[in-house]
Design a protein around this nucleic acid. Structure first.
Lengths: 204, 204
DNA sequence: GAAAATATCCTGTTTTTACAGGATGGACAA
DNA sequence: TTGTCCATCCTGTAAAAACAGGATATTTTC
């Protein structure tokens, strides 16, 4: 029985590329595509493919959240993350949210086929580059609290501690404490590197 | 006579997608592809296509610089910029460096064909979204000097004025002046927003 | 060759951050 | 129930950045 495939990606060229790569593969059946999260969910209500290839960057919702939602509603569907970025934090979050694999957009036809074959058997598939990144970048998964994220956002917006304190109805010293903890958690030396690192980790 | 096309993009899926979109088009001849700037330049030494579709993000060199280099060496080749980002600064720089058009990766088959037809006739082609962005975002093209960029980088790296001064063999007050000018140019309130804005404008 | 842009330097003040080293109460889990 | 985590608050000091308001020499550009 053929494996049915569905694609979610907002780039027409990528959809077309994947379709072209897979169209001559035996045992793979193309069931359609969506260019945003909403139409993906709409499709799934009617029909569930075996595998979804899911881009991380979507116009209406990020792939990480969509992945979680899809897996909650349709646990039997296997999801393969798809993006241009070989970024540890993204990949980890995708896998945490139930994805079975992750490939980069520069993947070859063979790699893509291999990924689909693997996940359909219940295995986990990561591109060579991806698993290497996961091994190499031993970033111990930085977790910020709700409040810390809030403060971080406002810092990046250029607000001073005093302004942040007023905005959040807390003391300036509390803001300072959060700031201190942010610097420690992200191993930043000062505000500049804090914002830089936070940006690189896609925390803001 | 058929229009010959060459693609530079580091994503295999995108190359395949474009090829798939164009393969049945009459009057378009696919001459090949490169996945980095170096092999693009190597190809051009042997053969010059009519049109190059060129991604902005390449592993070895950015498309903006590559565009300039190609246009200097082979002025008769038309270049169409290609990227996922609908970003004013990128588009403007591409056009300044001699590109004849700019399309996004979510372009349709018709749009792509239209773009090729237009540039081959010497016209300028911009996707609807792209030209809208150019009109809307009236960001008066922020230009930083060599030194300012240098200082900006070091600030984002978390260095203090004193450290930057030592590194660049200049006075602390000079660094402070550059910093002042950076804040003014990027309309930032402080270091945090400076780094944020600089990141958003892809200056660092 | 003149004007504009760039890079350099200065004094001084105020504001903001960074850092040290705490404490307290509440929520939640083992 | 006894931790652990989180959010809150505190005092005090040192360092750094922001801001004002300059000046001067060297390139670059027209």
């Amino acid at each position: 029985m053929a494996t049915s495939i569905f694609i979610v990606d907002d780039h027409y060229m990528v959809i077309e590329g994947i379709r072209s790569l897979l169209q001559n593969e035996k045992g793979i059946e193309w069931t359609g595509h969506a260019m945003n999260a909403a139409s993906c969910l709409a499709f799934l209500k009617k029909q569930q493919p075996d595998v979804i290839l899911m881009d991380i960057n979507l116009p209406d919702k990020n792939g990480i959240d969509l992945c979680k939602e899809v897996k909650e509603k349709y646990p039997s569907v296997f999801i393969i993350g798809l993006s241009t970025f070989n970024q540890q934090s993204f990949i980890r979050k995708m896998m945490e949210n139930g994805a079975s694999g992750y490939v980069l957009k520069n993947a070859t036809q063979e790699e893509l086929k291999e990924a689909i074959d693997a996940v359909i058997k219940g295995k986990v598939f990561l591109s060579e580059d991806v698993s290497q990144t996961l091994r190499k970048e031993e970033t111990p998964n930085i977790v910020l609290t709700r409040r810390e994220k809030e403060v971080l956002e406002l810092i990046a917006d250029g607000m001073t501690n005093i302004e942040i304190a007023q905005k959040l109805f807390i003391s300036v010293t509390t803001v300072d404490t959060h700031r201190k903890n942010l610097l420690a958690k992200l191993e930043a030396r000062n505000t500049a590197s804090l914002v830089r690192i936070a940006t690189q980790l896609h925390l803001i």
